[in-house]
């Protein structure tokens, strides 16, 4: 079970409160990655398509950040394995809007 924290605007959009819990099933024996988590999140909440990453390139939107285990994973490869504690459900994968404008 992967725990995902959404920013307030995307919680409203997805009609969720609190954390989103995802059953992530990747390729057999493959790592749990940022891409896999986001694919699963968007499949479960299709209204989030295009709000976190570009629908076609898959690139993270400029003012969206990914944090976990007190690390900024925003610029990690989307295919890099996520930290063990995120995969184990001990720590959330945090999606948030960058400090920008307003």
């Amino acid at each position: 079970m992967i725990r995902v924290v959404l920013p307030a605007h995307l919680k409203n959009l997805a009609h969720v409160t609190g954390e989103v819990r995802l059953e992530v099933t990747g390729p057999a024996a493959g790592p749990v990655t940022q891409r896999l988590v986001l694919d699963t999140l968007e499949a479960q909440h299709p209204m989030l398509l295009g709000t976190i990453r570009d629908r076609h390139s898959g690139k993270r939107r400029a003012f969206v950040r990914f944090y976990a285990c007190e690390e900024d994973l925003s610029n990690e490869s989307p295919d890099a394995p996520l930290p063990e504690r995120v995969v184990a459900g001990e720590e959330p994968f945090i999606i948030l809007g960058a400090m920008a404008g307003g």
Binding site: P7, H9, L10, L13, M47, G50, T51, I52, R61, F63, V64, G97, A98, A100, G101
Partner: peptide, 8 residues
């Protein structure tokens, strides 16, 4: 729309 999360 918005700068953070794009177009809806």
């Amino acid at each position: 729309s918005g700068g953070w999360f794009g177009q809806l």
